[in-house]
Amino acid sequence: MTALLEVDGISKSFSGLRALENVSFRVPEGSIIGLIGPNGAGKTTCFNVIAGVSRADAGEVRLAGARIDGWRPDQVCRAGIGRTFQLVKPFAGLSVMENVLVGALNACSSVRAAKARAGDIIEQLGLAEKRGAVAAALTLPERKRLEVARALATGPRLLMLDEVMAGLRPTETDHMVALFRTLNANLGLTILLIEHVMRAVMALSSGLIVLNHGQVIAAGPPAEVTGDPAVLECYLGEEAL
C-alpha cells in the first residue's frame, strides 16, 4: 500500500519544552491508524502540526507525496485532510444543519449541493432528529458526532479524529466504530485517530503508533504493539485495559 500521509522527522518545542522529537510515521492509503500514548505524549501537538495549526520546528509532512507542512489549516483542509478538535468547537449559534453545511461547502460547488450532502451526513451520524436544533443545545455526545459530521462533510481523503469517543457510552462508541468501519470500507476513507478508549482503538485500527514523551516508541500491527514491553511499561502499565 502507498502512504497517503507521511510524517517525516518533525520536532516541535514550546518555549523550551520538547513536545515532539523527530517523529516519523506513515499512514497507508485506505488504512485506519491509531495514535496512542499517555497524556502529554504529544498526540494533539502532532495533529496540530499536520493540520497546520502550529508549525513544526523541523521535519516534513506530505500528503499523497506533496509537502503540506507550513500550510495554513484551511489549505490543509482543502488539500484533503479533515480534522476534529479534542475540545469540540461547534458553531454554537448555528443549527446542526448549518454546522455541517459549512463543512460540506468545501466539497461542493453550490450551496444547494452542499445542503444535500450535509443532509446525508447528518443522517449517517444519527443527527437527523436534531438537524434544526442550535448546536449550543446539543449534549456532549451529540456535539462529538457533530464534530465528526462537519469534518466528514469537507470530503477528506484523510480524516483525523481527536478523541471523538471520549465520554461516549459503550453503545454510542460501538455505533461510531461501526460508522468508521463503513466509511473506510465503502469510501476508502483513510483515518488517523487519537483515542484513549482502547476498545475502539483495537476494534478499528489496522496499525498503531505509540507516542511517549514526544517520541515514537513503537509502531506496527495492534497485536504486536500492545505486546511490546516498552509500550506496556510506559502506557499499558499505567492505564491497563
Binding site: 495554513r72 480534522r83 478538535f85 468547537k89 461547534p90 458553531f91 448555528l94 462537519r150
Partner: peptide
C-alpha cells in the same frame, strides 16, 4: 455561511477549509 462560521468559531471555520 463562511461569515457565520467565522463569527461563531474562527478556529473551527479554518479547519473546515475557510480562508478566514
Amino acid at each position: 455561511y463562511y461569515w457565520l462560521a467565522i463569527r461563531e468559531s474562527a478556529d473551527a471555520a479554518q479547519a473546515l477549509g475557510i480562508d478566514i
